Simulated scan of single mutants.
Amino acid sequence: MNRLSADYSHRDSDWDRLVEIFEKTDAPEGCKTEIVEGIVTVAPLPSNAHNFIADCVQRPLYSVIPDDWGICQRLGVVVPSRDSLFVPDLVVIGIEVLRAEGGYTVPAEAAALIVEITSPTNARQDRTRKADVYCHAGVPLYLLIDGWDPAGPTITLYGEPKNGVYRVLRAGRFGDPVRLPDPFGLELATDEFPGRA
């Protein structure tokens, strides 16, 4: 079943039109195209610093996840009820979901952890809209790595989604370790994260 058109009970034609625009968007190779609450957006290639941070998060995660989980970069996650299709920097998800879903996307609620690393073009969306949509989808953990926070580079771990609101489980600055709770049980070092990724 194609998740771009499934599980969307109201305004099916609106979602279908958004998906059609998304699929026909001719963005330069490597750019990230998303649907953010009904608006198709295109973001440029991430910087090397951005990719370095993604690698700093991904490597230690492999040491704690079960063999039947994977860590995906650039995997589309959909929340049709919120008119959204995002391409997070990292998604930790069960391998069986990847095998079962056809196409290029998975339902956001299947993710165990979603990681977004801000850039100048998407920082505001990652802080507000994506946090809201991931929460409403029931994503258990959302890690926001924000090198573009006006107060300085920050890391925020959101969790325990309830009634459309995430609880902030940990907030700190680059350099502060971040403890990812079970099922990860991992203390993530952030001292090598470059600012303004």
Rank of each mutant, 00 (worst) to 15 (best):
V92D: 10
S81C: 03
A108R: 06
A110P: 01
E96R: 14
D55Y: 11
I65L: 12
F86G: 03
V91H: 07
L75C: 10
L75M: 13
F52A: 08
D67I: 02
H50K: 04
I93E: 04
Q58T: 11
C72F: 13
Q73P: 02
V115D: 05
Q58R: 15
I93H: 04
V97D: 07
T118I: 02
A108P: 06
Y62G: 00
R124Q: 12
Q58H: 10
D132F: 10
I71V: 15
D83E: 12
D55W: 11
C72Q: 13
R99M: 14
Q58D: 12
L90A: 06
W69K: 01
V40K: 10
Y142S: 08
K130E: 10
V87S: 11
R59N: 04
D126L: 02
V57N: 02
V79N: 12
F86Q: 01
V79S: 14
L75Q: 14
V115A: 07
E96S: 15
T41F: 04
V64I: 14
D89M: 01
P66N: 07
P88C: 14
V57I: 15
H50C: 06
L85K: 14
K130F: 07
Y104E: 15
Y62F: 10
L45C: 08
D126M: 05
Y142F: 15
D68F: 03
V57K: 02
Y142T: 09
N51R: 08
P107H: 12
D55H: 13
D55G: 13
H136N: 12
I65Q: 07
C135R: 02
G94I: 01
S81N: 07
L85E: 13
I145G: 01
V106L: 05
V106H: 03
L61P: 03
I65D: 08
L113F: 12
P88G: 13
T128S: 11
D132V: 06
P46D: 06
A111H: 06
R99K: 15
T128D: 12
V87D: 03
D68K: 02
I114L: 15
V115T: 07
T121W: 01
A131F: 03
A111Q: 09
C56D: 06
A112C: 05
E101S: 11
A43W: 04
C135P: 05
F86S: 05
R74Q: 14
V92M: 11
I65P: 08
A137N: 11
T41V: 14
I114V: 15
V79K: 06
L75G: 09
V42W: 01
L141T: 08
E101Q: 15
T128N: 13
L75T: 08
N51S: 05
T128H: 11
S47N: 06
K130L: 06
V42K: 02
R59W: 03
L143S: 10
L98Y: 09
S47M: 05
A137W: 10
A110L: 03
S119A: 14
S119H: 06
Y62C: 00
P66Q: 09
R124Y: 04
P80L: 08
G138Q: 13
D68I: 01
F86A: 10
R129P: 00
P44V: 03
P80D: 08
N48K: 11
V40F: 07
S63C: 00
D89Y: 00
V139E: 07
A112T: 10
V106W: 04
